[in-house]
Nucleic acid binder design. Sequence first.
DNA 1: GTCTATACCCCGATAGAC
DNA 2: GTCTATCGGGGTATAGAC
Lengths: 231, 231
Amino acid sequence: MSTAQGARARARTEVTAAIKDEARRQLAAEGAARLSLRAVARELGMVSSALYRYFPSRDDLLTALIVDAYDSLGERAEEAHGTAAGGPFERWVTVCEAVRGWALEHPHEYALIYGTPVPGYTAPATTVPAAARVGLLLIGIARDAHRKPDLPRPSLPDDLRPEAERMVADFAPDVPPEVVTALVAAWAQLYGLIGFELFGQFNRVVEEREAFFRQAVGQLARGVGLAPGHA
Amino acid sequence: MSTAQGARARARTEVTAAIKDEARRQLAAEGAARLSLRAVARELGMVSSALYRYFPSRDDLLTALIVDAYDSLGERAEEAHGTAAGGPFERWVTVCEAVRGWALEHPHEYALIYGTPVPGYTAPATTVPAAARVGLLLIGIARDAHRKPDLPRPSLPDDLRPEAERMVADFAPDVPPEVVTALVAAWAQLYGLIGFELFGQFNRVVEEREAFFRQAVGQLARGVGLAPGHA
DNA sequence: GTCTATACCCCGATAGAC
DNA sequence: GTCTATCGGGGTATAGAC
């Protein structure tokens, strides 16, 4: 009995994975807005109504793909962080390069999570933990670095201080308020660099992409007080 | 005869404008990937085949919307630049704020030009001049500022110098090579900030959006050597 | 330049048999 | 859990009359 259920559960897991794989393939060809359960079923040799046993609606399939993408990216970033050599500056750059590397390998999944929202689709709260992973990693790097109080701190205008203190309380404990707004800005700017490269805005503008990116994210690191060569 | 032709031409211009207006409305509801000539025609009380006299295909309509969006944004930015008070730093911030303002007012047109590319659509070369306007404006601000040779210059690693010199030659004449890569990075990062705000990544993260943005683009300006209060 | 009609496709979702 | 069949939509694009 338990083996029969095991086999059944295994089959279900495998079919679910096959559906998501095929859906990812279609993401590349058609984009998230046109992701179609029928087309996925057709390609898998199933009939469309059978898919509804795995995903109750198109939006649920989309949600699964989004969570998978955030987790895949987060895992890559965390892995890079774990194996990075050097101090906070070097770890920061390594994580940023890992994010870019993942994005270049999975452009359509990147577009799914950081590109234009899919019209008519609203991501449920279940996506939040996966979505937060890269941000939390960068926060952690900044927090660790600023345990040493001799690091330079960005300037913080008075009208932003309450906002910065709210951020510290909400999601960045133990990060100095002068750092947290710069950190959030750097986080958004990182995705500006990646998006421009991925979506073609750098065509005929930036050729040496890797060196350019390394320099740019190094400057972002300096903006949050990090510098090369600090243990 | 010329008045008849004039009237005919005028009618054509008006219908063309009505088609684009309705298409822009649908961009908001359905997204660019699902822009549909039939739906536009239906809403205008026309029959779909009539639209083909104005736009030979769906992609041509899309191209027209893209060029219009770039021009609308470019015009807003140039206008802001023309009326900005103060030195290069203040002009930079004003232009960035104008870009953000336009984006907040036209989120779906922003998504059309700076969001995920529409699958299966490739923008023709005719879009390039309109697309370049904001970038050229920022280049101009940096060039004017660096006419004074006492401005601080970003560091430029050796492996990026040839790339920087190519950029200067290709699209940023008279801008110091040390400045141009930082400038291009700042340009991309500006759109990272705007995209994150527009596409919801700042929800529950950044609340004081205007003050946050002003501070962030001020830091971008410093990154290209500009500082407040320099004539 | 607009109309009708048409060819030939696509979709999400559900009902009910097996 | 998969199937057939179905409801009720949607689309691009063209032909040919007016």
